[in-house]
Design a protein around this nucleic acid. Structure first.
Lengths: 339, 339
DNA sequence: CTGTTAGCGCCTTCAA
DNA sequence: TTGAAGGCGCTAACAG
């Protein structure tokens, strides 16, 4: 039974409940002898402290809320693996909130998360805008609950601890690589909904194009495969002979594009070179294998969790803005020579 | 501030805390007038009940524990979307436990989950064996916490509520479709680690092969892409001229196999027809598009969650074993004619 | 319909 | 080093 309470343990070990509590939370404050006795009884009875009572009395939950946009995005799922691994180290639990259905306003949702008494919040939603950022800031201040942004950022401010890569630079690099190969008609394939992370990729792309005096072409599409395909077919009809390079803000978009062009007998990478963004399983499973920015998503997850833990423990996190380094995976959708 | 307690609300609304509690939990027991007044104050103060206190007093958490094997598996991630959506309907929260790292024994983990006071458990780990099943049963009985298996099952018993499809039948059907096309050397590609769900697929495959007096060939490989590829290359050398049909227990394995064979100039589906299992994004993103069993993974998730909710509410769940119907997606890695 | 009261199980001073 | 006692915020009888 789960009935074993601290009282049962105390009684069986012939001590007061305070001593039991101490052996669990401040072992050094208990004489080794009694400590061991208590520990033994705890094991015998299979006692586990009641999380509610503990939380109510201590005002801590050893739980962090994780807010994600959509579980089925590979980057989100993989990041969660990293987070879970790191959280386990601290014996922290994860309370999962999926934003996908819009039944709830985000501000309502955040208050709900806070009300559930999490010690901190991991925010993995890359679709962040000014309002959202302001909201997060307000929540952090008002409720004194630390928030960490992972694989997303708000570049105009740095009040929230952030773990990300340099999306701007990555896109800038990709574009330049295409330009170096003599590609002239380079397109950026991004999401219809505008948001920070992808806006930065766009800016990096635009900068490189401008420097090379090339005409930028930005196509906005959906994350949905079938919708993608329609867009790309239209794109093919209107501009196919011109496109010779593509940068997609997500691997899945890149793969969709490659598929559509291949169906139209375009040769990849000879006719069109394609880069994706993330290095998910899609990238290595696709044929031709997708070249892409390799985002260290697992490390972003674990780093975010470890920084959050620091904040929860009241240790000052001096560096708010943590930019992890990325690399570029040259595979078969590009023909880049380092020379 | 999060300081607003039920007392503050009571005071401001000029009622006792009991009335506040009632307007929140048994609104019909409160005079509409006072109810509205209380509600207004609640809004003004931004009051949210403290989850700990509520849980401690009521012995309920409106939280379910979700146990998953590995977040990066597309089927798991998509199922979570379904679960989250359904959970939101009941205002239930999800506590996520990832088994991926084996730092913790599963029995320890389960006790931890229980100690965190979840009202129920959703078990999505398909790698279930006899011991694990016994353990789950024990936990359910001992701690009186309902457990639902989703997209997995233990076929020799039905004490735990289960939501799944008929994996045996699905594999049997796939095999027969290949046989009907005149394929003779049909291989099953399954995971190295043996577990129930895949064992059932194997049995379905074996049955069909036996009935057709064909020689079954079972290849065990890993879920890891790079390891896969090595295995498939070996397989190609040893048996390539013979293989003319393949059933893989996961989409990702099927796609890997198709890729390897294509590299060896095998034509898909002419030389080799290939079926996958699940219908993840991989299946539609791959080229040729993967034919596969379409498992209604979102519905499995939401059905599992809704059944769990029923159990939590004490409503008897008469049908323990819920087999959802699957379909077979014929795409481009097979050449099946319904005729 | 509303208020009073007694816990829920644990942590944390304060004394001893 | 240990025990006693108050309280964390809320629910759920029980009265009124």
């Amino acid at each position: 039974m789960n009935k074993a309470t601290i009282y049962n343990v105390a009684y069986a070990a012939n001590v007061s409940l305070a001593t039991v509590s101490r052996t669990l939370n401040n072992p050094q404050k208990v004489k080794p002898e009694t400590r061991e006795r208590v520990l033994r009884v705890i094991k015998e009875l299979g006692y586990k402290p009641n999380a509610f009572a503990k939380g109510l009395a201590s005002k801590k939950s050893t739980t962090v809320g994780v807010i994600v946009p959509d579980m089925s995005r590979a980057s989100v799922a993989e990041m969660l693996n990293g987070i879970a691994l790191e959280a386990r180290k601290y014996s922290y639990s994860l309370l999962l909130y999926v934003l996908k259905d819009d039944t709830l306003e985000e501000s309502e949702m955040l208050r709900e998360v806070v009300a559930s008494q999490v010690d901190g919040i991991l925010y993995l939603n890359d679709e962040i805008n000014e309002d959202q950022y302001a909201l997060l800031n307000m929540i952090q201040d008002e409720y004194k609950v630390p928030i960490v942004l992972a694989n997303t950022l708000y570049p105009y401010d740095n009040k929230l601890v952030t773990v990300c890569i340099d999306y701007f630079k990555a896109a800038y690099e990709l574009t330049n690589r295409l330009i170096k190969q003599g590609r002239k008609n380079i397109y950026l394939l991004t999401t219809a909904r505008k948001y920070m992370v992808n806006d930065l990729k766009e800016e990096g792309y635009l900068k490189a194009m401008k420097e090379a005096r090339l005409q930028p072409q930005v196509v906005r599409t959906s994350g949905d495969i079938s919708v993608n395909t329609v867009h790309f077919n239209e794109l093919f009809k209107s501009a196919s002979t011109l496109i010779d390079g593509v940068i997609a803000v997500r691997d899945s978009i890149a793969v969709s594009f490659v598929n559509t062009m291949t169906e139209h007998n375009k040769r990849i990478p000879d006719d069109i070179a394609v880069y994706g963004f993330q290095n998910t399983k899609y990238a290595s499973l696709a044929r031709p294998k997708l070249s892409c920015v390799n985002i260290p998503i697992i490390e972003i997850g674990s780093k975010a969790m470890s920084l959050l833990k620091k904040e929860i423990d009241g240790e000052p996190v001096e560096v708010k803005f943590n930019v992890l380094s990325h690399s570029i995976m040259e595979r078969s959708t590009t023909a880049y020579n380092e020379e």
